[in-house]
Design a protein around this nucleic acid. Structure first.
Length: 839
DNA sequence: AGCACGCCGACT
DNA sequence: GTCGGCGTGCTC
């Protein structure tokens, strides 16, 4: 038997199957989707079986004089991929122009990426009579190395040897060649066991308290920790201890240094939800609207006909309950279901709802899991121990064998697009998987993407609507505040009068507020007021961002850091000003305006630590803060009963970005925050501060009116020739030499145009009214919005095409034509199909 | 990616 | 005259 194997070596030239003989002992074991170790050139690599055949193909080595190599071994007891997923990977590779091995690897947890481990042991030559005499004298170091290997018997990992005997790599290789050492390569998965720093008491409680007395008076925190440990002598996780007592890890480490406690890494069991019980819930009665939607989905699931549904349901209309009952139907049919949610809304509350309904039938996949934990969850799916998975975009690849339903919640979220290769969109992957397997796909959103909306309007997707909120709670009134008027009125603060009054009255009533500062694409930067100098990254064409916590200037693209300048480096002036309203500045301003206000700030600076996100939200829920202030992460799916005010500091920061989706993003964000207030018994109020109050994405969001927004935005998109009326492929070229880059970029555009002509793809047709209708068009080249990153200049060109045109093929051909140039000049070309952010 | 083969400078 | 630099090319 012959296995066609895609080797996990993602370079040009290996993007095709290689033929291997399957040894008799594996014949009944190797399947399409198996992961195997195969010899490849001089080493052993991981590969995926994508096909099985009786005979090797004509052009394979086996047909010539050389013999086919043999599959070394099979890496898993059961194939980690199904034939259906292998097919899907092939679709991804074609559609998103990526190496097939990259598409296959993206479907598996990172733990299942085997790397060869080389090991050496004593070889036949060293055991021969006469020993090593004929190889000449060895230096003491060499003798020591060989003795070390001899003593340890068995095989030793080379990596480990090199740690002890640095620089002996060449020598080891030579000995292997001479037969003094024997070598083997074993493919090992990266299944590191998760370890957690744990605090142990190492003295008796009495002794500890005694030693606590001896601590200097200034060590208040340390004494506090010591007292707690003396009280609770059981080992406790460091993270748990620090969050419980609100101290830093440094405090505990200080105690450890003094020998009062012991810090040790302890292996932890990996079920992240093992120690939690979930209250089981039963299906809730559905409203008329809900049950109509539900029965539509049920019909498709029961008949196993692939249908794409777009569920347009306002915030609070009870989409989750419909999802859960649809999933139940799916399970009753003996099928499995996938729920995709944006990473940010994959909160414990969300997980709790699904665990509560489906219990142990649910696997959870999110980015905070360690490799081992993720693998464990994934195993539950592949072994058939669960029938429901809830997770972020990669959960679209859950290895179910009888998939019946895929739910994509908040389908408009851009996080469904992977920004690294394979640059897939989970929505498109789910659709492709549904088409192949007969599963139905439900796209749910209060603010659908215009792509999905247009598909529904055209009847490609079936539109389902839920326009009413559960229990008829009204959507909160939205007050749009014109900041220009505020400025005319003499208010130069970042808070308008109405928002100020709103916050003030909430403080008085003991109610809570959420403030949103949309900082995306808008960083705080530093400028000299005397000469206009701005601090820029020396490697990228972008200004440096100021971080107050560290007093450092940092480049968000390459990580370059420098100290905050005390005086202007250009003119020596001391008048340096910080521009851009960061959350830190808003926090300061709040403290000034409302003395004693308790602000919980949530942004990249305060949430990098693991679990910080959840911790801050819990604090806010427990009313340990009056105001929750944050970037867009506060807008998503949060549900606090005592929040009666939501304020958006500046609605238009992202409206002015050079991206055709900026209006859409603004509308989505504003609509979402507007849904955050008054979800419970207390009525809510929303303030949106803006300099462009007449913009339709602001007014439509203010009126909770998706239809009006969609109508206007679609008109803009038609006129500009943008999705959903076409599809885009963004090609970015980069190189250190600008001249070469420009020349190559132009050549690329010409090549694309020539290919389109050759294929007879029609070009530009101008329609009456200025609307453009074209089958394929190539724009550019132009400098990328960030023209230089990490010392490499960047140019881009854009292919616009009608959805039914095979543009991926065309781009693939064009890019291939530049292979030679890329190799010779180190120029890189990256292709993004259906780009979400044009930067 | 590795690791070979293969063609030009600083040493015994 | 050899050892070794890392530039190109291949892997069933």
């Amino acid at each position: 038997m012959i296995a066609k194997v895609i080797v996990d070596v993602p370079v040009k030239g290996t993007n095709r199957p290689f033929d291997y003989e399957v040894p008799a002992r594996y014949v009944s074991w190797v399947e399409v989707g198996s992961r195997v170790a195969v010899p490849f050139g001089p080493r052993v690599v991981q590969g995926f079986v994508v096909d099985l055949a009786e005979e090797p193909s004509e052009d394979a080595a086996g047909s010539g004089s050389r013999k086919l190599k043999t599959v070394d071994h099979v890496l898993d007891v059961e194939p980690p991929l199904t034939p259906e997923l292998v097919e899907l990977a092939q679709w991804m590779s074609r559609t998103y122009l990526c190496h097939l091995s990259v598409a296959l690897a993206a479907m598996l947890p990172a733990a299942l990426k085997a790397k060869a481990e080389r090991r050496v042991g004593i070889g036949p030559e060293a055991l021969r009579d006469g020993g090593l005499a004929e190889y000449g004298l060895m230096t003491t170091e060499e003798t020591e190395l060989l003795e070390h290997i001899r003593r340890s018997k068995g095989m030793l990992p080379v990596e480990q040897l090199l740690e002890r005997f640095p620089g002996s790599e060449a020598l080891l290789r030579q000995w292997v060649r001479q037969g003094i050492l024997a070598e083997e390569q074993v493919l090992k998965d990266r299944m590191n066991v998760k370890k957690v720093l744990t605090v142990f008491a190492c003295l008796s409680p009495e002794e500890m308290l005694l030693r606590g007395q001896e601590l200097p008076a200034s060590a208040k925190r340390q004494r506090q920790v010591l007292e707690y440990v003396a009280d609770h002598p059981d080992p406790i996780r460091l993270t748990e201890l620090t969050s419980l007592l609100d101290v830093t890890a440094g405090t505990v480490k200080g105690l450890a240094d003094k020998g009062l406690v012991r810090l040790e890494e302890v292996e932890v069991g990996r079920d992240p939800y093992a120690d939690r019980s979930f209250k089981r819930t039963s299906p809730l009665p559905l409203t008329v609207e809900q049950s109509q939607v539900f029965s539509n989905i049920c019909r498709a699931v029961k008949s196993a006909t692939h249908t794409m549904f777009l569920l347009h349901g306002v915030t609070g209309s009870g989409k989750t309950e419909v999802y859960m009952q649809s999933i139940q139907t799916c399970l009753d049919e003996g099928k499995e279901a996938i729920v995709l949610v944006p990473e940010i809304s994959l909160t414990p509350q969300m997980v709790e709802r699904f665990k509560g309904r489906f219990g142990a039938d649910v696997a959870v996949l999110h980015s905070r899991l360690s490799n081992g934990e993720r693998y464990d969850e994934w195993r539950k799916i592949s072994a058939g121990r669960v029938r429901v998975v809830i997770g972020a975009r990669s959960a679209a690849f859950a290895p179910f064998k009888k998939l019946g339903l895929v739910i994509i919640d908040e389908e408009h979220e851009s996080s469904y697009k992977q920004e690294e290769s394979p640059k897939y969109h989970a929505r498109e992957v789910a659709a492709a998987r549904g088409r192949a397997s007969g599963a139905s796909v439900v796209l749910g959103s209060a603010t659908p993407s215009l792509e999905s909306w247009q598909a529904a309007v055209q009847g490609k997707y079936k539109l389902l609507v839920m326009a009413e909120r559960v229990e008829g709670r009204p959507l909160p009134p939205v007050r749009i505040v014109d900041m220009r008027q505020e400025l005319y009125g003499g208010n130069r603060s970042m808070f308008s009068k109405p928002l100020f009054e709103g916050i003030k009255s909430r403080l008085e009533k003991g109610e809570q507020s959420v403030l949103l500062l949309n900082r995306r694409g808008y960083s705080t930067f530093v400028m000299c007021r005397s000469c206009g100098y701005t601090a820029g990254c020396p490697h990228c064409d972008i200004s440096l961002t100021y971080h107050q916590t560290s007093s450092m200037m940092r480049c968000h693209y390459c990580g370059y850091t420098e100290r905050q300048p005390a005086v202007c480096p250009e003119c020596g002036s001391e008048h340096i000003r910080y521009f851009g309203t960061g959350t830190q500045r808003v926090e300061e301003e709040l403290a000034k305006l409302f003395p004693g206000i308790r602000v919980i700030r949530m942004d990249v600076d305060t949430t990098t630590e693991k679990g910080a996100h959840e911790k801050l939200l819990t604090q806010f829920r427990q009313k340990k803060g009056d105001v929750l202030l944050g970037t867009q992460m506060v807008a998503k799916g949060l549900d606090f009963p005592d929040v009666t005010l939501v304020g958006v500091i500046t609605a238009d920061t992202m409206l002015n970005l050079p991206d055709f989706r900026s209006s859409e993003r603004t509308f989505q964000l504003l609509t979402q925050v507007a849904g955050r207030a008054g979800r419970h018994h207390l009525p809510g109020e929303v303030f949106v501060q803006t300099y462009t109050p007449e913009h339709y994405s602001v007014t439509a969001a203010g009126g909770h009116d998706f239809h009006r927004f969609a109508e206007q935005e679609l008109e803009h998109r038609v006129r500009g020739g943008y999705p959903p009326f076409c599809r885009l492929i963004l090609i970015t070229l980069s190189h250190t030499e600008l001249a070469l880059l420009v020349k190559t970029s132009e050549a690329m555009v010409n090549r694309l145009k020539a290919l389109a002509r050759e294929e007879g793809i029609p070009g530009f047709i101008e329609e009456a009214g200025g609307a453009q209708k074209r089958a394929l068009d190539v724009l550019g080249p132009v400098a990328s919005p960030i023209p230089r990153i990490k010392d490499r200049y960047r140019f881009q060109c854009m292919v616009k095409y009608r959805g039914d045109q095979p543009a991926s093929d065309l781009v693939a051909q064009a890019v291939e034509a530049f292979d030679e140039v890329c190799r010779q000049t180190k120029l890189t070309i990256s292709v993004d199909v259906d780009p979400q952010v044009l930067m």
